[in-house]
Computed example of a mutant assay.
Amino acid sequence: MWNGDGTVEVNGFRVFYSEVDIVRKIFERHPETATNIRPKNQLVKNAYMNNLLDLIDTICLAPQELTEEELRDAEKTLLELEEVGFELDWLKRKLKELCVKKKKLESRGARVRELDRMIVEQRQVLLALEAELKNEENEAVFDSARLGFDDVV
């Protein structure tokens, strides 16, 4: 239902017209999401829905785009929404997956840096060995040269 303030009512929440499809999808895929929500005040309900939409936007970001603080804030927001009656097990799983991906990405980054450091060290060792090999080859050429008459006499 269209309200005169640019919002549409979806499952008891007033959302901006641009968010209608997103909110409908949430309720289609997860009809239990707001069945137990306690606040009755429309402004409070709308604020919680905005928090939910912001949380979903955060979870949609790539792990490298998020700081640890943003992930902690997302977890706090999720808990607050659950405390007022939202059923968000589906979203909690996604947030946990995102946290795991973030940790894997960080440890992979550390491993990549370690491997890169090891490669640099090994290149230096290889360059030193190549220089030593060239020196040995030069000395071998010198040692294998025939002596001339003047060298002997």
Rank of each mutant, 00 (worst) to 15 (best):
M1T: 07
W2D: 05
W2G: 02
G4R: 06
G4H: 03
T7M: 02
T7A: 03
N11V: 05
G12S: 06
G12F: 06
F13K: 01
R14D: 07
F16M: 11
Y17D: 12
S18M: 10
E19D: 15
I22T: 11
I22L: 09
V23R: 00
R24Q: 13
R24W: 04
R24P: 00
K25T: 09
F27H: 11
F27G: 03
F27N: 02
F27Y: 10
E28P: 01
R29C: 08
P31K: 06
E32P: 01
A34R: 04
T35Y: 07
N36Q: 10
I37P: 00
P39R: 07
K40N: 09
N41Q: 13
Q42W: 08
Q42H: 08
L43A: 12
L43H: 11
V44Q: 09
V44E: 13
V44N: 05
K45M: 14
K45W: 07
N46K: 11
A47G: 07
M49Q: 03
M49P: 02
N50A: 12
N50T: 12
N51K: 14
L53F: 04
L53D: 00
I56G: 01
I59H: 01
I59Q: 01
I59V: 11
C60K: 13
L61E: 06
A62N: 09
P63M: 04
Q64E: 15
T67S: 15
E68M: 14
E68R: 15
E69R: 12
E70A: 13
L71Q: 04
R72L: 15
R72K: 14
D73Y: 07
E75L: 13
K76I: 11
E80W: 07
E80H: 14
E82K: 15
E83V: 06
F86E: 00
F86L: 10
L88G: 01
D89K: 05
L91D: 01
L91M: 02
R93G: 05
K94A: 02
K94S: 04
K94T: 00
K94Y: 03
L95Q: 03
L95W: 02
K96L: 07
K96H: 07
C99G: 03
V100N: 07
K101C: 06
K102E: 03
K104W: 11
L105A: 09
L105F: 11
E106Q: 13
E106G: 05
R108L: 15
R108D: 14
G109M: 09
G109W: 09
R111D: 09
V112R: 12
R113W: 01
R113F: 04
R113I: 03
R113H: 04
R117T: 10
R117H: 11
R117I: 04
M118K: 14
I119T: 13
V120P: 00
V120M: 10
V120R: 13
Q122T: 12
R123F: 02
V125C: 02
A128S: 11
A128V: 05
A128C: 05
L129V: 02
L129A: 05
L129H: 04
E132D: 13
E132W: 05
E132F: 02
E132Q: 11
E132S: 10
E137M: 11
E137D: 10
E139T: 05
A140G: 10
A140P: 01
A140T: 10
V141N: 11
F142R: 15
F142K: 14
F142V: 13
F142P: 01
D143L: 15
D143A: 14
S144L: 15
R146G: 06
R146H: 08
R146K: 10
R146L: 10
L147Q: 13
L147G: 09
G148I: 06
F149T: 11
D151W: 05
V152I: 15
